[in-house]
Design a protein around this nucleic acid. Sequence first.
DNA 1: GTAATCAGTTACCTTTTGGTAATCAGTTAC
DNA 2: GTAACTGATTACCAAAAGGTAACTGATTAC
Lengths: 124, 124
Amino acid sequence: MKKMEHNECMSALLPVRDTLDIIGGKWKILILISIWEGNKHFREIERSIPKLSTKVLSKELKDMEENQLITRSVLNGFPVRTEYTPTEHSKTLEKVILELQNWGTNHRKKIFGDKSVTNNSVHV
Amino acid sequence: MKKMEHNECMSALLPVRDTLDIIGGKWKILILISIWEGNKHFREIERSIPKLSTKVLSKELKDMEENQLITRSVLNGFPVRTEYTPTEHSKTLEKVILELQNWGTNHRKKIFGDKSVTNNSVHV
DNA sequence: GTAATCAGTTACCTTTTGGTAATCAGTTAC
DNA sequence: GTAACTGATTACCAAAAGGTAACTGATTAC
C-alpha cells in the first residue's frame, strides 16, 4: 500500500475532504442508492427514504447534480415530471461506499462483538 | 464487485454511517495521520495541525480513544505528559482513507481537470 | 370550482459542530 | 513568587446542517 506523506499542511488530504463533503451528511448516500436502485422521480425518491423531507431532498439533489453524480431532466407532460438518473461517474463511488461499509462492519465487530474481550480497563 | 441490496431501510448502510461518524468531521483524519506520523503528545499534535484548537483536539482525541483508534497513557514526570499512540485497529483505516483520497483526486480531475491540468488550478 | 398529483420553495426553528478566549492544576527554572 | 511549560476544561458564540409546515404553480379528473 502506498505510504502517506506528510507535507506542510497535508494537502494530500484535500481530496479526502472533497469526497467526504460530497458523500457525507445524513442523506446523500441513501439518495444515491435509491436512484441507483431505479427510483427516478422526485416523489418516488422521497417516498423510498423514510423521514427524508422535500426540502432536504431538493437541496441534496442539487448538490449531487453539481457534482455530476446525477443528471436532471424535465419531461413536459401531464403532471410535470422530472427524471433523475445516475451518471457513469457516480458508479465509481460504489467501491468507496463498499469500503466504508466494510470497515464499519468490522469496526462494529471489534467494538461490540468480541465476547472474549481482553479489554479489562474499558472506561465509561 | 458485490452488489448492493435494498432492504426495508437499507440497513446495510448502518455501518457506512458508523464509519462516516468516526472519520468524518473537519479534524479526525488529520489528527489520526498526525499521530501515525509519530506525534505523540497533546501539544505536539496540536502544533502539527494549524488552526486546530485545544478544545476541539481534546474532544476528538476522546472520541478516537472511545473508538479504539488510539490509546492514551499518562506518564508521570516533570511537566506531566500524555502519550497518544495509534492502535493496530486504526491501521485498518488506511485503506479506507486511501480510497477516499483516490476518489477525490479523480473527481477533481473529472470536474475541473479535463484539460490535462494536473493540479495547478486547484481552488480552495 | 374543488380536489389531487407532481415538483419543488419559503420562512422559521432546533441541533450539531466548530471556534475564541480565559482559566485551572501541576511542575520546573529563575 | 513569577514566569513558562505541560494537558487540559469551561463558558460563551457563530455557523452549518437538518427538520417542520405551509405554500406556489401547473395540470388533470370530477
